[in-house]
Write a protein that binds this DNA or RNA. Structure first.
Length: 259
DNA sequence: ATGCCTAATGCAATTAGA
């Protein structure tokens, strides 16, 4: 089972890239973030023609998350996180697919720090943790996948000193990430590559991709039953070099089928 | 401190991204 995450940065503006990558990579499940489209604008038909069922939570101009699946109709289990009835951002959608609970998330960026956006990020992360603890009690395989907008350690950025006061690298966010790991979640990429510099995002500015001035922001957190099935983890970094690419690259993991 | 780039909105310039 091949599960991917891809911050597409505008699904309609980059549909050609998305379809090309879907054909070349052939993932079974895809978590998408930053759709930047309303529910009506989501390209459901085209994706169906390419063999993918979809569920999505759109929003005008910003945010927006979706899950694509080649396993047929998708059983949605949740949309949005509990804990803030005034939260209007489309950032979380969850489904039960092929025996796995898959949460697709787009964590708030949180810049500038300090400020209300950073406070929103931290609160959102605490709401995610509360929900993740509930998921752990079910005894099912669970993956929390998406753009976390967190660099967990100095290994996850080309220049840590530049990011000291950046919301992506602030201790407040990284400590909450550590709390997730303490609860029993495994960072799939770091599990397989503990010492390597691996990036999933390269800024559009100053030829960041050409200089490999990247950040690791897109993560797979796996609970114990799923962690045992982890076979591979790959960043399709070349996709970031395609014309009109998103500033993120697709990332995917391969899971052994359950016995 | 700002621009460098890109998208959406909407048709100029702003907001947001990370």
């Amino acid at each position: 089972m091949k599960i991917a995450t891809y911050n597409i940065n505008g699904i309609n503006g980059r549909l050609t890239n998305l379809l090309r990558w879907l054909e070349e990579a052939g993932p079974d499940v895809v978590c998408l973030q930053e759709l930047k489209c309303t529910d009506n604008q989501f390209p459901e038909k085209i994706l169906m023609d390419f063999g993918y069922h979809a569920i999505w939570q759109g929003q005008q101009s910003w945010n927006g998350v979706a899950i694509l699946s080649r396993y047929g109709e998708i059983q949605e289990t949740k949309r949005g996180l509990d804990g803030d009835p005034d939260d209007t951002h489309s950032r979380y959608i969850e489904a039960f697919i092929n025996g796995v609970v898959i949460g697709c998330l787009y964590l708030p960026n949180g810049n500038p720090y300090p400020g209300p956006k950073f406070d929103y990020k931290i609160k959102w992360l605490m709401r995610l943790i509360a929900h993740s603890q509930k998921l752990l009690t079910f005894g099912l395989p669970v993956a929390l996948i998406g753009d976390y907008n967190i660099m967990p350690t100095a290994l996850d950025t080309y220049k840590p000193e530049k990011y000291i006061n950046n919301a992506l690298f602030r201790p407040e966010a990284r400590q909450l990430w550590e709390e997730l790991l303490k609860d029993g979640w495994t960072d799939a990429i770091r599990q397989l590559y503990p010492d390597q510099r691996i990036y999933t995002f390269w800024d559009y500015l100053r030829e960041a991709y050409g200089r490999n001035a990247g950040l690791r922001l897109d993560h797979f957190l796996l609970n114990q039953p799923l962690h045992e099935r982890l076979v591979r983890a790959v960043v399709d970094a070349d996709v970031r070099g395609w014309p009109h690419s998103s500033d993120h690259a697709p990332v995917w993991i391969e899971l052994a089928e359950s016995r």
